[in-house]
Amino acid sequence: MSAQRPRRVTAAVAVVAALAFVVGCGGGSASGGGSAGAAGTVTVFAAASLTEAFTRLGRDFEASGGTAVVFNFAGSAALAAQVNQGAPADVFASAATRNMATVTGAGNADGDPVVFVRNQLVVAVPKGNPQGVAGLADLTRPGLKVALCAEQVPCGAAARTALDAASVAVTPVTLERDVRGALSKVRLGEVDAALVYRTDALAAAAEVTAVEFAESARAVNDYPIVVLRNAPNPGGARAFVAYVRSERGRAVLAGAGFRAP
């Protein structure tokens, strides 16, 4: 999309976002975008896997004297599309460099993105690991139901890389649309194992056990973050990015299971 007339597109997106907000069905779309223009708020578009960690960081940031933070959590691809369509966001944090590339490629980033965390895969199994899954090779066991992410989404691509690296041919029962979908199949007991991000497995620690495996090092996801070119609040945006990369920020992210870059 050309950046020739961002104003009109922005207005249109804002109207749609406001409508979605009013009718209360803004699930996954640009919810919260309507208040982006207000002074003193930072609007952050962040990958769904950052939901818990960033929500906490946002609260800390506000408490430490920063401006109010409004989040829009969704799949990285959807967020990248929204940013390129002119959604009024200040910061974009992606779960994959590929999606970040579409934003930078469209000239919508202010400066170069920096990788602020990494995530890697684990085998999520029901609490206590009743099937005794010890590694990727166990996933080929007959009768064992496995959920993977579809290869079109980052966690699926990472799973493909890891499985190929381990030369393991798994026949999953489902290729989920995102990591949460795969994880929920484990939580509901519909599958015996799923390849998900470490952070997601940790967030569901009450019901899910994470089994680490060596090949995960071959399929590491980098999370880049960037201030957007058309940010309504560039100052606040920079402050937030700095906070994410600060010691305090890194501690919160590590607590959520992310690895340092």
Binding site: A77, A150, Q152, V153, T174, L175, E176, R177, G181, K185
Partner: peptide, 23 residues
């Protein structure tokens, strides 16, 4: 996609294919 999952030829209907293609 929630109940039947997504697997080509078995449970991947057009809307599921569209959604994933969108990614």
């Amino acid at each position: 996609i929630t109940f039947a999952g997504n697997y080509p030829g078995r449970t991947q209907t057009m809307p599921l294919a569209v959604y994933l293609a969108l990614e």
